[in-house]
Design a protein around this nucleic acid. Structure first.
Lengths: 231, 231
DNA sequence: CGCGGCTTTGATGTTCATCAAGTAAAGTGG
DNA sequence: CCACTTTACTTGATGAACATCAAAGCCGCG
């Protein structure tokens, strides 16, 4: 498996498109000195609930899940973050400790930037502050929207949602390998594992999708979209 | 009914505790010149989905609901905002238009501050930027937390949640008048109106609460909290 | 090879929305 | 102010949607 490239200078970082686009060379150097990049293998835990927050975490590459552990050692997945997402939602401003746990669901490279540097940049560089908030607001907004989207639908609509999510927003292809297990899908869209499987099988029988283990191909996009829309 | 007092100078605003605490006299004057306060009667609409965002809205007094209108003219309530809340979530940064509609569920005073002024303050006053983001992050974080709280519980737990919310977080009393209808409760916690009523009646029969129309008294807090915890 | 976790299907029961029908309360126009 | 209409509230009955339980096949891994 290909190991994502380690970038050594923020200035040349191909993932910089983000909120960091308007930073001066000087500011970038500041960040560069206080950042660490790290590769996390699929399944590796990136951070845990309740541990102190000291870094801003930026996902360069890969795919991670944000989740909470319930009392009865069940997990509840809040969202899946994609490259160029700031992973960790808004907790960095409103909390001293992590609210969610984060685990890589594909090999991922996370860039950790010292939180104080970011806060200082917000204070000293107003344009950055605005760029930055636009971006993290959009992420939080989309999490809220998604949660509502999921919870106002019934099972078939939820499965359609998740298939469309992976196909359109993450892999840009009608054919892709599911990065998460059926159980994790269940934890993400609030249903039982058995019913995830049942609905997937149903879609297969109806020739809407083709399944082979984790490999999925969407055969009838129109119908899938209709199921999603109707809920 | 008492009409909330109109404040004419931000400097003396008793609701200023918020993110505005660290503003200089000068900055406050800036805001003061570009703000409007308005009283909304119970039931009055404050803003609608899709209308352009031009103001930052701060709730001085009262209680408002944030909701989305579904295609089938059903409403889905996202959250209830209390005094000192910034009402409108994060859309001001990530959207050009309102994502949610907002309606007063009690007589409410909303302070509208020109959005450009706020953005300018963020750019020019770093400390304010941090204060401001801490606050709005906390609000968005809590909306996310609440949505999960609600959706991982079943009906009895959801009703317990909403009763505890009103009692502890809004009215600070075991006795209070529900500001919203049974139907609205249903729209807020994703269940049918009939079942809201059924569960409330059940709680009444079990002597956990006392109901008289919209007036509710919590008789057995311990038991209610247990129902909430168990889901 | 055998163990545990993931996947799958069927059977069963619970939770919940929906339908129906009636009462109470709150607006509304004459 | 009263008849009228509409909206909110309430209860019971029914069925649909869904979780849970049970059992068996599959796969990777030590």
């Amino acid at each position: 498996m290909e190991i994502p490239v380690k970038v050594n200078n923020c200035k040349d970082c191909i993932y910089r498109s983000w909120a960091f686009k308007n930073l001066s060379e000087e500011d970038l150097k500041l960040i560069n000195n206080k950042k660490t990049e790290r590769l996390f293998r699929k399944g590796e835990k990136i951070c845990s609930e309740n541990e102190p927050i000291s870094s801003f975490m930026y996902l360069q590459n890969g795919l991670v899940k944000l989740y909470k552990t319930e009392t009865n050692d069940k997990e509840h997945i809040i969202s899946i973050s994609r490259p160029k997402d700031f992973i960790g939602l808004l907790s960095i401003f409103s909390n001293k400790t992590q609210v969610y746990s984060i685990t890589a669901i594909e090999d991922s490279v996370v860039c950790f930037v010292d939180l104080e540097i970011i806060k200082n940049l917000i204070i000293t560089n107003g344009i950055f502050a605005i760029d930055f908030f636009e971006k993290i607001s959009a992420i939080a907004d989309s999490v809220i929207k998604t949660r509502i989207d999921i919870n106002t639908r019934q099972l078939r609509g939820r499965i359609a949602y998740i298939l469309l999510l992976f196909s359109k927003q993450i892999y840009n292809s009608s054919k892709f390998g599911l990065p998460i297990s059926r159980k994790e899908i269940a934890e993400l869209i609030d249903m039982s594992t058995e019913n995830v499987i049942r609905v997937l099988s149903e879609f297969r029988k109806d020739k809407i999708i083709q399944i082979e283990g984790k490999d999925i191909e969407i055969l009838d996009l129109k119908r899938l979209e209709k199921i999603y829309e109707l809920g």
